[in-house]
Nucleic acid binder design. Sequence first.
DNA 1: GCGTCGTCAAGAGCACCGTTCTCGACGCAG
DNA 2: CTGCGTCGAGAACGGTGCTCTTGACGACGC
Lengths: 235, 235
Amino acid sequence: MTAPATARARARAELTREILDAARAQLATDGADRLSLRAVARELQMVPSGLYRYYASRDDLLTALIVAAYDALGDAADRALAAAPAGDHRRRWRDVCRAVRTWAVSHPHEFALVYGSPVPGYRAPADTVGPATRVYTLLLGVLTDAARAGQLAPAPGGEALPTGLHEDTTALLATLDVAALGAARLLRAITAWTQVLGAVGQEVFGHLAGAFRDDALFFDHTVDLMADLVGLPPG
Amino acid sequence: MTAPATARARARAELTREILDAARAQLATDGADRLSLRAVARELQMVPSGLYRYYASRDDLLTALIVAAYDALGDAADRALAAAPAGDHRRRWRDVCRAVRTWAVSHPHEFALVYGSPVPGYRAPADTVGPATRVYTLLLGVLTDAARAGQLAPAPGGEALPTGLHEDTTALLATLDVAALGAARLLRAITAWTQVLGAVGQEVFGHLAGAFRDDALFFDHTVDLMADLVGLPPG
DNA sequence: GCGTCGTCAAGAGCACCGTTCTCGACGCAG
DNA sequence: CTGCGTCGAGAACGGTGCTCTTGACGACGC
């Protein structure tokens, strides 16, 4: 698939990317459900039906946008973690969370696409679950690092995995190396990540409604509380 | 406006309500941005333009639906609080939170309408801010009751209101009687409510993705952690 | 009791949308 | 250089929110 590289194949790959870029630009300004195949086609000076040569449907284009958003968010988180000091686990946690928030507030529609109300009539295909778990596994890695370094406060619970998890989730966690975290702390980690996402969502979706003079400070407050929750030592 | 009660006025009020009910039914099945004036009109066997005699625009109808959703959620919370034992403040907190979740999972689209990604192009008018704060003030009341009864764990911070709040929020809180809560705890209460909403949103919007066998247990876990956070005594 | 007037239902029409189809043109492999 | 396959153009279908005009009908003043 990658080999032929005829002029036609290259032109096709290029146009496929241009379509995605134009769609992302329109998504950034107008939002997911205002995404219009016709407008994208206009932008690229082609006729609407021409897009169907590259994406089978609006949903297909949406899926590509979702994967792109997950990847952009994952990249931002990766960069934040790489830039954080190796030994300061609480700060690594905080910086990754901050990167998530920063990316979300500067790409609100893309954040909404992946973590907001689902787009009506759209059903996420399996291709999206991989990129979707990137930040989640990254934060779990931060915690296991801290646990291995003996930097995590003791937490109750002894089983390898929390009860109440669905079998698929258990299987996913088994592929990671989370044994150093106890069951109770793993459950708290899932809770903490859910809460961080929830806090970002509340802010991005405007439900904080300007209650705070600086939403970033409120977010830091939440991230700190969640760091306490998972047993990260105070910086 | 309420006085005349002519047959015409009554018919008008009735039809206004029927339109709202039909729209709510359509919202419940199809979602907010699939809400179609034409479909509502079809349902009521009238012509689409006829609806404009009762709601000036699609946005007006949307506003009515938002207020109705806030009220339904507020009513559910009120009922839960009324049914909870007066002295058990932690249980009162938990029951109200549970009622919020229960209402949300059984009315996902209405929940998304008020607490999800904002409907693009729609700007909430001032009429919606009153109903929007109902559950929030209700939970603050639970906490102040507990504080007055001396049932809240001590928390740091001495000022009357948390710093970092916007002036409008400070003004709103001043109308409530939250002096019994310290500044730090008030901030934590706001955090806790944000987190509860976030947890409900994650579940309703499908981002828990079936990670748990029973999402209600996970939610209870979160609510418990948040009760700890605001200093409610263990039940 | 009649005529005016405001309110309302109805319909036509505009500018969009996603999607499907056909058709002519053109690049490229044989 | 011929034929296949891809490509973009264009038209069409049924849907959307919304505006504007038209005509009927009940209420109220005189």
